[in-house]
């Protein structure tokens, strides 16, 4: 099976401090891969580095091409999109304009089927159709997340990277979002899902990595990981308590 994304030996430093150490990670075509781990493990840093928002060392191969001078715009044009943790919507613009801008790179390269893509996005997120003329800044938390994902889909990505889509959302909305992510897989897009909500993420993923203090601590088939007691330890530090007790 071919890999859409192949990260080899990725290291990221802030100043003199290394935040990510020698990360190796693969995402196969059409698969959902999740990276879980507690707060501050370096999950967001990893996505930012892959997307070219942060300088990094190591090798990033996307669509079979090793990326040398990583430029965000170039990666977007090649089919990589990131839905960031903070959503980064254009708050003072309408839902429709936000979506249109999601297809900016495709528009630049001459594609003019934005109306059709938007129709598909509306079919996935009917709520957005109702809100199409509303300003993005006035949406509720769940709707914002839907808009952020919908905007990314407008680019017809080959690889969709999601940073904590469940962050700050109520459980019911989280469930809806995860169902949609699982459905997206059927359209053939590969998904790299970074989550703190480990159980939900492992339920829809095919493969998982556990990131802990900047390194991959565990990896494996998501069903095996879900049952691994070490995952619980990573989150709640039960191991430590047993040691001290």
């Amino acid at each position: 099976m071919s890999n859409i994304l192949d990260i080899r030996d990725l290291c990221v430093s802030y100043g003199k401090v290394e935040a990510l150490h020698h990360i190796n990670l693969k995402v196969a075509a059409g698969r959902i891969v999740t990276v879980i781990g507690p707060n501050g493990a370096g999950k967001t840093t990893m996505l930012s580095a892959v997307m070219g928002l942060l300088p990094s060392k190591g090798e990033i191969e996307f669509m079979g091409e090793v990326q040398r001078a990583i430029e965000v715009e170039h990666l977007v044009a090649m089919g990589m999109t990131l839905v960031p943790e903070k959503r980064e919507l254009f708050g003072e613009m309408s839902v429709e304009d936000n979506l249109l801008l999601g297809a900016f790179q495709r528009y630049r390269s001459g594609e003019r089927d934005q109306a059709q893509t938007m129709e598909e996005v509306f079919r996935t997120f009917p709520r957005l159709r109702e809100r199409r003329v509303q300003l993005a800044g006035t949406l509720s938390g769940g709707e914002r997340q839907m808009l952020a994902v919908g905007r990314a889909l407008m680019a017809r990505p080959r690889l969709l990277m999601l940073d904590e889509p469940s962050l700050g959302l109520a459980p019911l909305i989280v469930r809806e979002i995860f169902h949609i992510i699982a459905d997206l897989k059927k359209t053939g897009v590969a998904i790299l899902l970074v989550e703190q909500n480990a159980r939900a993420a492992l339920q829809i993923a095919d493969y998982g990595y556990v990131l802990e203090t900047g390194s991959i601590a565990l990896e494996g088939d998501s069903r095996q990981l879900a049952d691994d007691p070490r995952v619980v330890e990573t989150y709640l530090g039960l191991g430590g308590r047993q040691k001290t007790a």
């Binding site: 997307m51 965000v72 715009e73 960031p84 919507l89 254009f90 801008l101 900016f104 905007r151």
Partner: peptide, 23 residues
């Protein structure tokens, strides 16, 4: 126009715009 909107988008949210490929 999309380019006009892209300029507004950059003014509103630089990171968001970059992620859309608006350099």
């Amino acid at each position: 126009t999309l380019y006009g909107k892209a300029l507004r988008a950059t003014a509103i949210n630089r990171v968001g715009a970059r992620l859309m490929g608006i350099s």
